[in-house]
Design a protein around this nucleic acid. Structure first.
Length: 483
DNA sequence: TTTTGAGTTGTTCGA
DNA sequence: GTCGAACAACTCAAA
């Protein structure tokens, strides 16, 4: 009798460079399953990631079918479903790629024990990181707390291994009758918005799935890598990789990115300088560092990494939060970013920092309220990156900026969106203002406002807070907890 | 154990 | 307009 395996897809929705899938497919006929974990105690996916997931699963199912495989989608508690599936289908081996949030780590450990106890083999793999979070340590074996030494130590471990090819042929065993009623169709999961359908902008901006991810990488190496080190800070340009949501769902692996970059540079196809490539790789490094932090600090998304911040005098201003969410703070760069987020499910990294800083520092709102909004609206909402980055901006995180480093959203706009193209794109009601007024319309001369058809407080809001006053108030608040 | 050098992304002020 | 210094001390990681 030939062997049968089961591969459990999670945040690894790809066929290429998927070590757990390769292991399963090498064993024999392979069930491929995805489980939508609907337990109440888990942090539910946000709206944007649910949308992305639905399309990514659709792409994955099609890719599996092209190779003779099949994706079975289940809904429920994996701790119960996986052993039940394994037993009913009489599989010899279960494989999956690891995840690193606390709930997943606990679930995986429990599952492994239970499934092995039933006599079924379990094999797990690293499918989403260059280094496991526990592999990079200080000389004394402690977790790292500063990015630069972390990344240096990670690099010293050597080049990541070459990516694995996708299995050329998959064989899907028939589903046992007893499991038929467990399988769900994609529409049954109700992952996509219906009334209202807010996903039009997402559909225009993205192609979820492995093919879309690969194409994005190719495009980036061709068009974005040249000048990346500087261009990445320009929201008015198209020079970031836009790989974040693809990485979020494992439609592409960091290993594949690393090697594609290396190959393109060796062959001379990549336009970027060595500095551009290093800068880009260090962004993968930040992703690794965030996972390192999350693994060693399981409550990174809810608890201040620096506990002095437990006494920070946050204001709880629901109206200010709502105006920030809707892109109606009256500060153009912040509002442009928040509208880009709402429309496309993504925001340029530079603008994320400015918008987050404005919420935390100028509006004194708890970073967790911003983290929660990003979690719901970003297509790349990631348990490690989102939490680590919000804490970094707040100053409560690892290796955080000094407390006095407060972004001025007007200065940032003038520096990184000098002609105002980004602001005009997302805030059409300001489009008629001259470049020199676009980032601070409240200071524009009356005739410029009139010519542009703008009435501050009517056609576009007055700023929620005076920039200089907000900065000083934040500095005073930080002084209170410095002790 | 102690010492030493270094630390993603900024702003403002004054010369 | 441009440039350097101050901001405020602290923690990390390695020697």
């Amino acid at each position: 009798m030939t062997k049968r395996a089961l591969h459990w897809f999670r945040d690894d929705l790809r066929l290429a460079d998927n070590p757990a899938l390769v292991c399963a497919a090498g064993t024999g006929a392979t069930y491929c399953i995805y489980v939508l974990d609907d337990r109440a105690e888990r942090r539910a996916l946000g709206g944007a990631t649910r949308w992305w997931l639905s399309h990514s699963l659709e792409a994955l199912a099609a890719a599996l079918e092209r190779r003779g495989g099949r994706l079975d989608i289940l809904c429920g508690d994996p701790a119960e479903l996986l052993p039940a599936f394994a037993e009913a289908a009489a599989v010899d081996l279960i494989t999956w790629n690891r995840r690193y949030d606390a709930a997943s780590v606990d679930l995986d450990a429990a599952l492994k024990e239970r499934i092995s106890g039933n006599g079924t083999a379990v094999r797990t793999f690293n499918g989403s990181l260059l280094n496991e979070p526990w592999e990079v340590t200080t000389r004394t074996g402690q977790p790292m707390k500063v990015f630069t030494p972390y990344w240096r130590a990670a690099r010293e471990r050597g080049e990541p291994e070459a990516p694995l090819p996708a299995p050329t042929r998959l064989e899907a065993p028939a589903l046992p009758d007893s499991l038929g009623h467990r399988v769900r169709s994609l529409p049954e999961l109700a992952l996509r918005p219906t009334r209202p359908d807010w996903a039009g902008g997402l559909r225009e901006a993205w192609t979820p799935g492995e093919d879309g991810a690969t194409q994005n990488l190719v495009d980036f190496i061709e068009d974005g890598l040249g000048g990346y080190a500087d261009g990445r800070d320009r929201p008015d340009r198209d020079s970031t990789s836009r790989l974040s949501p693809h990485l979020r769902f494992g439609e592409i692996s960091p290993r594949q990115i690393w090697h594609a970059l290396g190959t393109a540079r060796k062959s001379g196809e990549a336009k970027g300088s060595a500095a551009d490539a290093e800068k880009f790789l260090s962004e993968l490094g930040w992703r690794e560092f965030s996972y390192h932090l999350l693994f060693h600090n399981p409550d990174l998304a809810t608890r201040n990494y620096d506990q002095r911040f437990d006494d920070f005098p946050w204001k709880h201003d629901g109206e200010a939060l709502r105006r920030w969410q809707r892109g109606l703070t009256g500060v153009p760069l912040v509002d442009a970013g928040m509208r880009q987020l709402w429309t496309t499910g993504w925001m340029h990294n530079r603008v994320r920092m400015v918008a987050a800083s404005f919420l935390i520092k100028h509006l004194l709102q708890d970073w967790r309220t911003g983290e929660a909004w990003f979690w719901d609206t970003l297509v790349d909402a990631d348990p490690a990156n989102n939490a680590a980055s919000w804490q970094w901006v707040a100053g409560s995180g690892a290796d955080a900026a000094p407390y006095f480093r407060i972004f001025n959203p007007v200065t940032q706009g003038e520096m990184h969106d000098p002609a105002g193209a980004y602001v005009r794109r997302w805030i059409p009601e300001l489009a008629g203002l001259p470049d020199k007024n676009i980032h601070a319309p409240w200071k524009a001369p009356d005739d410029a406002l009139k010519a542009a058809g703008i009435r501050i407080g009517e056609t576009y809001p007055a700023p929620l807070v005076d920039i200089g006053f907000g900065r000083q108030r934040a500095l005073d608040a930080f002084a209170m907890i410095r002790g």
